[in-house]
């Protein structure tokens, strides 16, 4: 049973990891807790669903269109709300409230348009299952885990090795200074949001395929988990988000299997608090420099 539970944990964890990457990236650049991230995740899944069922085009074409549209929505959130706030030198908190408001708008728009009932979603990644001992592993689970790793590596290369990533790092440290160095901060930040939209859509659609369904609570139900996974790994650190997600998933599964399903969240979150007590910057976070 333990092997099976670890497999289960890896699957849940890779779902968290997949969404947490986009979240932690925006965080890394802007130090902004993006509440609308889980809405983008839901939006992506619903748009894929819409294009696939309404137009009858090939699924992966619908997926592609959805990725672009979700990226655009991410861009829109930044362009029409957050950029205005930056212009006004608004405090970070107002950005947070704005993303909260945006997420309410997106969530409710989806609810009104699609209704709140669950929709069935076809799984195009269903390639059967394999056995490890008596444990069952489906290919969908493996693909999700691989996708999370590939995305993490790609993004890590972009942010840690490429010029644009350096620009992101500069903005993260000091926006004004970055501007003075000739970095087009607005462009880079918009790009960050577009990428986070892409990621959210990929995550949403893949998770929808795995569970074969989408519903309007899919975003809100994992919102806090995503945040927890990102913090656990050290906010802003991309590999951290993946590891944080996986650890959270496995802890949850083990708690649920051996202690109690009802108290699952209470126990796994208590463990999170304990970890933060010992490691205040998460598993991979660098110690924040306190500027006096």
């Amino acid at each position: 049973m333990l092997v099976q539970q670890i497999v289960n944990g890896f699957t849940i964890g890779s779902v968290y990891a997949l969404v947490a990457i986009g979240f932690t990236m925006v965080f890394g650049v802007l130090e902004l807790t993006n509440f609308s991230n889980s809405s983008l995740y839901m939006f992506g899944a619903y748009i894929t669903f819409l294009f696939y069922t309404a137009t009858g085009i090939h699924f992966f074409l619908a997926f592609g269109i959805s990725i672009v549209l979700t990226g655009l929505l991410g861009y829109g959130i930044d362009r029409f709300a957050l950029r205005q706030l930056r212009k006004k030198k608004a405090p970070k908190l107002s950005g947070l409230i704005t993303t909260l408001g945006m997420s309410m708008v997106v969530d409710n728009a989806i609810m009104v348009f699609f209704g709140t009932d669950s929709k069935s979603f076809e799984n195009f990644l269903d390639f059967g299952k394999i056995y490890i001992g008596s444990a069952v592993v489906t290919w969908t689970q493996i693909i999700i885990l691989i996708a999370a790793c590939i995305l993490m590596i790609t993004l890590s290369v972009i942010t840690y090795r490429m010029k644009i990533g350096k620009a992101m790092g500069a903005i993260a440290q000091n926006q004004d200074a970055a501007k003075l160095m000739g970095i087009d901060t607005d462009k880079i930040i918009s790009l960050t949001f577009i990428i986070s939209g892409f990621l959210a859509c990929i995550a949403g659609t893949m998770v929808a395929m795995y569970y074969r369904s989408i519903d309007t609570a899919m975003g809100s139900s994992i919102g806090i988990k995503i945040f927890a996974a990102a913090v656990l790994g050290g906010v802003g650190v991309l590999p951290g988000a993946v590891v944080g997600g996986l650890v959270l998933g496995i802890v949850e599964t083990i708690v649920s299997a051996y202690i109690s399903t009802g108290y699952r969240d209470a126990i796994s979150f208590s463990i999170l608090i304990l970890v933060l007590l010992v490691m205040p910057n998460g598993l991979f976070g660098k110690k924040a420099i306190n500027k006096v």
């Binding site: 408001g101 409710n108 009104v112």
Partner: peptide, 20 residues
């Protein structure tokens, strides 16, 4: 049914007008 949507939108607008 548009209640929450309008509420969210108002929140965003108000934040844009008075960020503090």
């Amino acid at each position: 049914e548009y209640r929450q949507l309008v509420y969210g939108a108002l929140l965003v607008v108000l934040m844009l007008v008075r960020p503090d």
